[in-house]
Amino acid sequence: MAKPAQTERRMFHNSEDCPIRKVIAQIGDKWSLLILFALVDGPDRFNSLKSRIVGISQRMLTQTLRDLEREGYVLRTVYPEVPARVEYELTEMGRDIVKPLYQLVAWASKHHDDIKQVREAYDEKC
């Protein structure tokens, strides 16, 4: 009797060309998801975002907004006023990426207590 052919397993390369690695690395950091979800409510200004995302430093908010803008998820608009007014909003791609992320957040919320119990049981064993 012939052995069944092994299914080919996916390879994940540590390279700049890996689309999974590039996307997950950006949105999977500590602050990007929170910023994206804050902007779902509509355009917002820097200080408003900072007050709504508790615990983020000014430096980290600045850097993360720049990274999200560079990736095409966030649009930064500077209005020619005195003093200058700057708003951040989701781009079409930003609104698009938030949709599947809602599923992840809903899953995390649904399983939060289960995960907490499993972690506690694991820590007791160690």
Rank of each mutant, 00 (worst) to 15 (best):
A108G: 11
L68M: 06
A121G: 02
F37E: 11
R95Y: 02
M11P: 00
A25Q: 11
K99H: 02
T7I: 12
E8A: 08
M1K: 09
A106W: 03
P43S: 02
L61I: 06
A5N: 11
Q58S: 13
P80C: 06
E16W: 00
A38I: 01
E8L: 11
R52K: 15
D67M: 10
G72W: 04
D96G: 12
K3A: 04
D29W: 03
P80D: 09
Q6V: 12
I115Q: 05
D44A: 11
I53P: 01
I53S: 03
F46C: 02
L36W: 01
Q117V: 10
K50D: 03
V82E: 05
R59H: 12
V23G: 06
I115G: 07
I115H: 04
I27S: 15
S15N: 09
F37D: 03
E8G: 07
T91W: 14
G42V: 10
H112V: 03
S48R: 04
E16P: 01
C126H: 15
V40H: 05
T62W: 06
Q58E: 14
A108R: 04
T64R: 09
I35R: 03
K3I: 05
W107H: 06
E16R: 00
D44T: 07
V78L: 14
Q6T: 13
M60K: 13
S57G: 07
V54R: 09
V40C: 08
I24Y: 11
S51W: 04
K50A: 14
E81G: 12
D44E: 12
D96E: 12
L49V: 11
V98A: 00
K50Q: 13
L33C: 04
F12I: 01
L104E: 07
D113H: 09
V82R: 04
E8R: 08
P80M: 04
Y102I: 08
A2C: 03
D96M: 10
V105G: 00
L49N: 08
E81P: 02
D41Y: 03
Y122N: 10
F37K: 11
M93Q: 08
G94Y: 02
C18F: 11
